[in-house]
Computed example of a mutant assay.
Amino acid sequence: MNPNDDTERVLLAMTGCGEAAAAQVIATALVEERLAACVNIIPGIRSTYRWDDRVQTENEVVLLIKTTAGRYDAMQARLIELHPYEVPEIVAIPVERGHAAYLDWVRASTGR
């Protein structure tokens, strides 16, 4: 593993989901399929957004997904496949700094 290789760059991706059960299915699949090293499921989020030209407010859970740039496209495709929303939020932020051993673990856990 070469942390200077852009495909090995660790990413923190995020999505929201309306049902905890659906979030768990997504988290388990992503980790089992080595598309994510870890997925945190955070309950109790309240989201306000515009959909169908109306402002709506719903309860959600947020999934924080630790992956690598090299696994991102496959992770995103699988997430879209599993996600119950018509247009799921999926955003990713590059991890600029972190505990080296943890970042190495993310890379190893998502390795093919």
Rank of each mutant, 00 (worst) to 15 (best):
V106E: 04
P84Y: 13
R107P: 12
S109E: 14
V95A: 07
T110G: 02
E86K: 14
I80G: 14
S109W: 15
Y85K: 01
V106A: 08
I90L: 15
A100R: 06
V95C: 13
E81L: 05
H83S: 00
A108Y: 06
G98D: 11
D104N: 15
E89F: 02
W105P: 03
P84E: 13
E96F: 06
Y85E: 04
E96S: 15
Y102F: 07
Y102C: 05
P88C: 00
P88D: 00
A108R: 11
V95K: 00
R97Q: 15
E96T: 14
E81K: 10
L82H: 12
H83V: 02
I90K: 12
E96P: 01
A100W: 04
V91D: 06
E81V: 04
A92V: 08
H99P: 11
V95W: 04
L103M: 12
R107F: 10
G98C: 10
R97P: 03
I90F: 14
A108S: 14
I93V: 09
A100N: 10
P88G: 02
P84N: 10
V91W: 12
I90P: 06
P88W: 04
P88T: 03
V87M: 05
L82P: 12
H99W: 06
P94F: 00
E96R: 13
I93F: 02
W105R: 02
I93L: 00
H99K: 01
P84S: 07
A92N: 15
L82V: 11
W105K: 02
W105S: 05
E89T: 00
P88I: 11
A101R: 13
V106M: 12
Y102A: 05
I90T: 11
P94R: 05
T110M: 01
L103I: 09
R107G: 10
P88L: 08
E89S: 08
V91A: 07
E81M: 07
Y85C: 01
V87Q: 07
A100C: 10
P88F: 05
A101I: 12
R97F: 14
S109A: 15
E96V: 15
I93Y: 00
W105I: 10
S109T: 14
I93R: 05
E89I: 01
A100Q: 12
L103H: 07
Y102L: 11
T110F: 03
L82A: 11
P94M: 04
T110H: 02
A100S: 07
A101W: 09
P84G: 07
A101D: 15
P88Y: 03
S109V: 09
P88A: 10
V106D: 05
R97C: 12
T110W: 01
G98V: 09
P84K: 09
D104S: 13
T110I: 05
P94A: 10
L82Q: 12
P94E: 01
H83R: 05
P84C: 09
P94W: 00
L103P: 06
V95Y: 05
L82R: 09
D104Q: 15
A92P: 04
L103G: 10
A108Q: 12
I90A: 14
P84M: 13
I80T: 15
A100F: 03
S109K: 08
A108F: 01
E81Q: 12
E89N: 02
